[in-house]
């Protein structure tokens, strides 16, 4: 059971109040883009053992989308942050580094 804190309404709630939205920080490559980029955008997903970044929606609450960092192995939630960002905030990255030294995920580490 995952317990998230919604960054918009501040509620600490368990995962049945939220709905998962797949991987976070995907950059869209639409019509006219390179085939390799398009394929990567559409199909290629991370499947890490350890630190992972995901999108979640507070569907039975304020209805807002947000990003969350969690560990796929221990189900520990490192933190949540707003969806209007291109990468996780530095303090969250530091927190993950303290707990999982040497982690990396896509271009972040």
């Amino acid at each position: 059971m995952l317990i998230f804190e919604c960054p918009y309404c501040g509620v600490h709630a368990e995962e049945t109040e939220f709905s998962p939205g797949g991987e976070a920080h995907l950059k869209r490559f639409g019509p006219g883009s390179d085939d390799t980029d398009f394929e990567r955008y559409l199909f290629m997903r991370e499947n890490p053992k350890g630190v992972h970044f995901e999108r979640w929606r507070h569907v039975n609450g304020c209805g807002k989308w947000f990003n969350a960092a969690r560990c796929t192995m221990t189900l520990e939630v490192f933190g949540t942050y707003g969806a209007q960002t291109f990468e996780p905030p530095q303090d969250l990255k530091d927190k993950i580094t303290a707990k999982r030294p040497g982690w990396s995920w896509r271009d972040f580490s």
């Binding site: 309404c9 509620v11 709630a13 049945t16 109040e17 569907v59 039975n60 304020c62």
Partner: peptide, 9 residues
């Protein structure tokens, strides 16, 4: 508090 009751919002 907005939440769910059983299976409904």
């Amino acid at each position: 508090r907005r939440t769910r009751f059983g299976q409904v919002a």
